[in-house]
Every structure is written in structure tokens, then in C-alpha cells.
């Protein structure tokens, strides 16, 4: 008996029997942006803010993290074990995620992470499990996500972002793209910020 796999592949081949296989993809669209560094940062800030997220540009990201947590009233905060010391504010109970279970994460007031890269045009931050980012659940389950973005990690366009992330995909690392706080438009297509993911997103651009 033919396996489903072989049957499907045979159907595909039969369907394509008289089809030329060469289809050229022409990548004539913009592969990179044209703004200078300051312009890219400015666009990123504007676009993240458009999602109703909080954006701070800071030359002292540690202090910015501290004030973001204080402003949110977050006391017990999850971090990755390898989060940079300078991003760990004093006076807050920092809990390193050494395999916390989902309920532990749910009991936290927030999480502080870094990110891998970011895209200005779409106001997107990308998390790929690299240094300071932790596993995906850390920046998902708590209701507040404070994310520190190195200014030089911000690219202008989506093709540049995908190019920056491709090595992580090849290594099999999971990636999450975050563009603003969680939202739904399911009720009358009216956008409501905050459903299951963190309802508050604070993005700190470290210059």
C-alpha cells in the first residue's frame, strides 16, 4: 500500500507534469533602508510608540530599567540568568529563570530582557534566545515586558531584520517578533491593547 507521503508526492508530481519548474524571483524591492543612524532610531521610536508601547531613549539603560519598573510598580521581576549586571536595578526582587514553571512565571510582576535586533519601519523587536533574552516564556507570561534594545541593533527595513535573524533560525533557535503590546481587533475590528501577552511593553533604546 502506498503511504500517504508517497501518494501526496505522486499527486503533486502528476499535477505538475506539464509545468516548467523554473520561476524566477526578482528581488527588486528595497533590501535596505537609506536613513542614517539617528534617522533609524528616530523612526523606530516613532513606530513603537504608535503601538501604544512606552519608548525611552537612554544613555544609561540600567537607570531607565529601574524607572520603568518603578513606574509600573513591578517588585518581583524575572530575568535571564545571563542578563547583564548593569541592567539589574537595585531595590527590585530579581528572579533568575532557571526553569521556572509557567505558574511561577505567572506570579511575576514583569520581566526584563534584551533583544537580538529590531526593525525601525515596523517598530519591531526580535527575540532569539541570545544573551540576556531568556527563553520565550519569560517575556510572555508576566504582564509587563521591559526590553532593552541596543541602538546599533536597530535596522531600518524588514529584509534587514530577517537577514539578521537567519543565522538564529539555522541554529534552530526559536524567534519571536514583538511589535507593541498584545492586542486584539476581534471585537468590531476595534483595536484593544492587551490580551494574553504582556499588556504593557516598555522599550528602552540604549544609545
Amino acid at each position: 500500500m502506498t503511504s500517504p507521503r508517497e501518494a501526496i508526492l505522486a499527486r503533486v508530481r502528476a499535477s505538475l507534469a506539464d509545468t516548467p519548474s523554473a520561476v524566477a524571483v526578482s528581488r527588486t524591492y528595497r533590501l535596505r533602508g537609506e536613513r542614517d543612524r539617528a534617522g533609524v532610531i528616530e523612526l523606530f521610536v516613532e513606530r513603537v510608540r504608535a503601538y501604544e508601547a512606552t519608548v525611552v531613549v537612554a544613555d544609561d539603560p540600567g537607570a531607565a530599567v529601574a524607572s520603568a519598573l518603578e513606574a509600573a510598580g513591578a517588585r518581583r521581576v524575572g530575568i535571564a540568568p545571563d542578563l547583564d549586571r548593569r541592567l539589574r536595578p537595585p531595590g527590585v526582587e530579581l528572579i533568575e529563570d532557571q526553569g521556572l514553571d509557567s505558574r511561577d512565571l505567572d506570579g511575576l510582576d514583569g520581566a526584563v530582557t534584551t533583544c537580538a535586533s529590531a526593525c525601525a519601519e515596523t517598530g519591531t523587536i526580535a527575540i532569539d534566545g541570545g544573551p540576556g533574552q531568556g527563553r520565550r516564556a519569560l517575556s510572555l507570561v508576566p504582564d509587563l515586558h521591559v526590553c532593552v534594545v541596543r541602538a546599533e541593533a536597530i535596522v531600518e527595513t524588514v529584509p534587514e531584520l530577517i537577514a539578521a535573524l537567519e543565522p538564529s533560525a539555522r541554529e534552530g533557535r526559536p524567534i519571536v517578533l514583538v511589535s507593541g503590546p498584545s492586542a486584539t481587533s476581534d471585537i468590531e475590528l476595534t483595536r484593544v491593547e492587551g490580551v494574553h501577552g504582556p499588556r504593557r511593553l516598555v522599550v528602552i533604546v540604549a544609545t
Binding site: A50, C119, A169, G172, P174, I175, L177
Partner: peptide, 21 residues
């Protein structure tokens, strides 16, 4: 689809990842 520059979340995963997911 939603008329946004980017949807809030895009998840990309590759098989299984030890310690994450």
C-alpha cells in the same frame, strides 16, 4: 490583513529547542 505595519507577535520555531518550549 489587519492594516498594521506589523502584527503584534510573530512566532518562528524550528523543530524543538532544548530548554525553550
Amino acid at each position: 490583513s489587519t492594516g498594521e505595519r506589523m502584527n503584534p507577535y510573530t512566532s518562528l520555531w524550528t523543530g524543538v529547542c532544548e530548554g525553550d518550549g
